[in-house]
Design a protein around this nucleic acid. Structure first.
Length: 436
RNA sequence: GCGGCCAUAGCUCAGCUGGUUAGAGCACAAGAUUGUGAUUCUUGGGGUCGCGGGUUCGAAUCCCGUUGGCCGCCCCA
């Protein structure tokens, strides 16, 4: 029994786990490439202030933070957004637009573990910078959908809820609320699904009871589930800002419908997300059964690059976490159990034959075939058993009898047929076998 | 930060109201089988029963603490 335990909430990836993780990464990476996104990475350890600047002091309790030997306050990254804002902000003027970047990286949060949540986890992050219009959202939501659909998930398995923080802002403004009150109401909207009317408690404590008429309108607004209902509600009010937002909504939903993705998208103004820095469309992906945490989340954050010291640069992004996503894939039987079977297994008579076999073994490997053989002398019967168990399609038999004749016996483990092949023909014969 | 449940072999677990040397299945390894297939049979390695303390003649079992896990709340960038 090991004396040292893995730190709480951290994960180890034994080969079987690692192959699953690779499966996620491989398809995410491949999908991002098809959308023209470029991959980047950045330090795991960052100045603590980078996160305080974005989210305030209270964030510190959920960070792996400490003082380094140079007296610097540092933290393991809990997310990618501030980092990528810094990277892009530093070179914004020289980067070709649109700036489309993605990363697959590990993040750390000092939290209590729960289903789908640990202290370390991977995220696929994708962001578009420099594009203020809904064209950016179109690309990102399409990418998000494809990053899930690439695994075989369908609209039966997940969907994306689409909302709009700015629309809420303009609407509440039109109802006569000031900025502080608007933020209070948005906080309540975010919690309404879970707590019902209690969600307004915090607002009432801070600002007094919300006007009855306003509240009724808020409750009606957050239950809007379609573009038509949205248009109807906003049409009554009018105003340039609202009209402009409505035009963006039409464009975004029209684009996504044209891509054939309408079945994945649901208008749901009840989604606001807790994060204060979102400035426009926000979206979250959930499993249809509603059993799991959010699969992914994102939105527009037009002010953040500037807030972190860069130029004014509009931005949209989202992140998919690996833990909840893996749970969903396993639930749906879509997580492959990758068996790493060799192509060829060599059965070797003895030490002399072994030296004869090594030449072919290496040549086959150099040609790209996965070749296994017993590292130590093992009885023939055992070797055949091992060859069968390995999952190899082909066995090459290097016995004394064969080598004396200048041949190697090639056994098709599936068909259970054998043929003798001249030594010099082993590599081409194997190549022929696998090219059929 | 709060609450509930849990901790015995690599894995899944059994082990009665405390009683000699802590078990099973799976997995792993060797042999039966010195040149031909997943079966079968035999055998083997592997545990300070999470850790520490207490009660007791005696603790895997009861009590306290601690560490870790699962689940939920808070939070969720």
């Amino acid at each position: 029994m090991a004396t040292f335990q893995t730190l709480p909430g951290f994960r180890e990836f034994y080969p079987e786990d690692f192959s699953r993780r690779n499966h996620l990464f491989r398809l995410w990476r491949q999908t991002a490439n098809t959308f023209g996104f470029a991959e980047y990475d950045a330090p795991v350890l960052e100045p603590l202030d980078l996160y305080k600047a974005k989210s305030g002091d209270e964030i510190e309790g959920q960070l792996f933070s400490f003082t380094d030997k140079g007296g610097r306050e540092v933290a393991l990254r809990p997310e990618m957004t501030p980092t990528v804002c810094r990277l892009v902000g530093a070179k914004a003027s020289t980067l070709k637009r649109p700036i489309r970047w993605f990363s697959i990286a590990e993040f750390y949060r000092y939290e209590r573990m729960q289903k789908g949540r640990g202290r370390c986890f991977f995220q696929f992050n994708a962001d578009i910078f420099g594009e203020p219009g809904p064209e950016a959202e179109t690309e990102l939501i399409a990418l998000l959908v494809q990053c899930l659909a690439a695994f075989g998930l369908t609209e039966q398995d997940f969907f994306v809820r689409l909302s709009d923080r700015n629309l809420w802002f303009y609407y509440l403004e039109a109802l006569g609320l000031d900025e502080a009150r608007i933020r209070g109401v948005l906080g309540a909207v975010d919690r309404f699904e879970k707590y019902g009317d209690d969600a307004f408690k915090g607002y009432t404590e801070q600002f007094g009871p919300l006007d009855g008429g306003v509240k009724a309108k808020v409750l009606a607004f957050l239950q809007i589930k379609s573009l038509a209902a949205l248009e109807q509600t906003l049409g009554v009010i009018g105003g340039e800002k609202l009209a402009a937002r409505l035009a963006d909504w039409k464009k975004l939903l029209g684009n996504l419908a044209a891509m054939g993705l309408a079945r994945f998208i649901e208008v749901d103004l009840g989604v606001v997300r807790g994060l204060a820095y979102y400035t426009g469309f926000v979206f979250e992906a959930f499993d249809r059964k509603g059993e799991l945490r959010a699969l992914a989340g994102g939105g527009r954050y037009d002010d953040l690059v500037q807030k972190l010291g860069g130029p004014a640069l509009p931005a949209v992004g989202f992140a998919i976490g690996d833990m909840t996503f893996a749970l969903l894939l396993e639930q749906r039987g879509l997580m492959p159990t990758l068996v790493q079977a060799p192509d060829v297994y060599c059965v070797i008579g003895g030490e002399a034959e072994r030296l004869e076999a090594f030449g072919d073994i290496h040549a086959l490997r150099a040609a790209g075939y996965r070749v296994d053989y017993p590292l130590k002398e093992v009885a023939f019967g055992k070797q055949f058993k091992a060859a069968a168990e390995s999952g190899a399609k082909l066995a090459l038999i290097y016995g004394g009898d064969e080598l004396a004749k200048g041949v190697v016996k090639l056994r098709d483990l599936g068909a259970r047929t054998e043929q003798e092949v001249p030594r010099a023909q082993v590599v081409p014969t194997v190549r022929d076998f696998f090219s059929v």
